[in-house]
Design a protein around this nucleic acid. Structure first.
Lengths: 152, 152
DNA sequence: ACAATATGGTTTGATATCAACATAAACTTC
DNA sequence: GAAGTTTATGTTGATATCAAACCATATTGT
């Protein structure tokens, strides 16, 4: 028969995905939260991703790039790219690992630490507001955190 | 005094952000879930974002770009860009809105609906696995979904 | 009808993201 | 110690993401 209907998902199936897909819900929330923290950090010309990355670098011993990427659940090549603007701005320095000549060890500069210190109260304030909204919605920030961490 | 210490966040503060930041946890989970669904959809050369977008277009009446962007909690300009590869592949067509000459109405083509129908069982399978893992971790998929939706 | 404003989309420029491939150094096995 | 393997990272090319500036069409106020 030449008049076969092409397969098509029903609208009910669309609603099923909309109402159930955790991937979609997470991407959506990630976009919304990104914007919110980006707005808050904007006076410092810092994005939420840069804030998280710099925080991850604020350790007693500089971690390897691989360890940072794993911690952020991010591709290694993404991390390489993400470091570039920070290095360019003098917030992060990348040193060679003396024990392994393949390895490179990123760390915050004094300027990076100073900027991160300035960002911290902004984070606290913004985060407290988000927490409060979740509580008001009965959503349980602690459980949400735990569930999100269990996904990666 | 010329030897003033530059301000620096303590390591304890770094741990506080790591353990409490919902923005970070959400970005991290979003990356991990993205990869997972991207892997699953790879045989169809479809990303999780393209899947969600196409699902959002599977409606009785083509929505406006603005409404789709709101629904995805995504910038309008992001949506414009995201549609391009789909239009190029002939999966989506964008028509003019007869009632408002500024407006454009995206909709799935037959090829788009067929691909989406092929993707649906892959989504079901992958999503069931994620759901099961969350349950096993005692994380409560339904509560997680509700919390994520309350953020946007 | 005209001017001012609002709305729907696009373009541009920057960063973010990943997969696939490439490179180099360390390690392992023989 | 040479060959093969694994590990750490970088490069390239594509899509995703946003804000800011912009253009065209509606809408509103007078």
């Amino acid at each position: 028969m030449s008049t076969a209907e092409p397969p098509r998902p029903s609208f009910a199936e669309t609603l099923e995905v909309r109402d159930r897909c955790l991937c979609f819900a997470t991407q959506r929330a990630a976009r919304a939260l990104s914007r919110r923290f980006d707005d808050a950090f904007r006076p410092l010309e810092l994005t939420n991703g840069q804030y998280s990355l710099m925080m991850a670098l604020n350790q007693p011993q500089p971690p390897s790039l691989g360890r940072v990427a794993d911690f952020l659940a991010m591709d290694r090549s993404t991390l390489t790219a993400a470091l570039k603007p920070l290095v360019r701005r003098g917030l992060v320095a990348v040193a060679e690992d003396p024990r392994d000549r393949r390895g490179r060890r990123p760390s915050l500069t004094d300027a990076g630490r100073a900027l991160l210190a300035a960002a911290l109260p902004i984070w606290r304030e913004t985060h407290a507001a988000v927490d409060a909204e979740l509580d008001a919605a009965g959503a349980g920030p602690a459980e949400l955190r735990a569930a999100l961490w269990s996904l990666a």
